[in-house]
Amino acid sequence: MPKTLLNFRGLDSTRATTQDRPNGVSNWPEPPRVEDLVFEGEALALNASGLIISESFTCYFKRPTVQILFSPQGQDTFIQSPESAVFLNWLRNQYIHVATKDVPMPTAALLRSLVTYSYAPGPALESEFGDELFRRMLLAALSDEPIEDGITHPAENLIQDAHRRNASRCMQTLTFILNEMYRNRPSLSASLLRCIGRMRAERLGPWGIITVKQALFHEDVEVRDAAIRALEKWGTGECLQVLWQYRDSEDWLNDYVRQVIYGMTIELS
């Protein structure tokens, strides 16, 4: 059997292989079968409250590159949270796209078994949780000044810097902040979304679209407007597809979507 390597960036040990049984862990499971592990990419972990906390996760096996979600302790929150639903959906699409026919379709159960198998958080990971300083600075910047059309906002520079330092960690923190603010501070989360929308789509990868798709279903019109603005800014074929399928409860936003679709269709053709 080929060596199963699970790489946890952000942990002190950096790497944990299936052969490295952590101290004090007696029920460290056997390595999963190679045909069950076909993931290469990043994973985001949800804690018991459904918040994303973990660093990157890499399984070196076959070709497909997918992002997966996993739960530290395999709680049910993993499959119940809206983030994981969006992610799983995306994973399936991605997986179908890249997998060969003889590779079994991943299921929530399989992913959960991976989690139980692989998750070994240490103090280093806990201390890195959420990057509190970045979070505070970002919120202060967003609270200080409104976003002005066409004018760079100080929060954008903070995000760009954090992204340059560690892209996946930056995106995790942004997800964390957005989730935190969606309920009570929708205007602030709309401002943050607008800053995110001003980043280049290719730098954000699938995370950008996933984040914006989630925002499109927010009850606050400012958040939805910010999400559409982001899709317009990124201007990719995938963004256009999302907009084609989108209907808003506000007429003026639907008019905006139509305007954007018209412009993007011309641009992309």
Partner: peptide, 10 residues
């Protein structure tokens, strides 16, 4: 305007 750095919906 003198502070504009890009294009945005307005």
């Amino acid at each position: 305007g003198p502070l504009n750095t890009g294009f945005d919906t307005m």
